[in-house]
Amino acid sequence: MVEVLEETTGKDGRKVLKVAKENLLALLSDLKDNGFTHLSLITGIDRKSKLEVVYHLHNLTKNEYVVVKTETLDERVPSATGLFKSADWDEREQYDLMGIVFEGHPNLKRLFLPDSWVGHPLRKNYDLSKVQYINMDENGDDYATFDPGDGW
């Protein structure tokens, strides 16, 4: 059995399991074997000092819901792509917007933003006043330039 740090019930009545980063994959695969086959959502939350990653898992046959939470200090979390195919794009999105590096992801590229984008917009320390433009050079490669003005 995987060691769960804390088990609470959220404000919306869902079971929340807190788990250490090392035990995350073991817990997820445990849950998957118990029928939680539907990985609904992966969310990264920037808590300033650390990054929180939240997994919403769903059991379609028993209609149960469970939320798995883990924390990381070094922006690195093991990837769940081996367990759930839907984790592929979710993790790419979180890498794109939040800058969480999912270790073991086969194709960890930005999902929405251009590859040459600088920074991860959903971080709390992302400088919104800096306006970025993505340009294309003669070879068709992208590069970013910054607006010297005030931004918006």
């Binding site: 959220g10 404000k11 919306d12 869902r14 959502l41 969310t43 939350i45 939240v54 919403h56």
Partner: peptide
């Protein structure tokens, strides 16, 4: 607090996770 609410949109399960 944290709330995750799910609704059935025409495309499927539309969830909003608010912290």
């Amino acid at each position: 607090g944290e709330v995750y609410a799910r609704t059935e949109s025409p495309k499927g399960e539309f969830g909003v996770y608010l912290v």
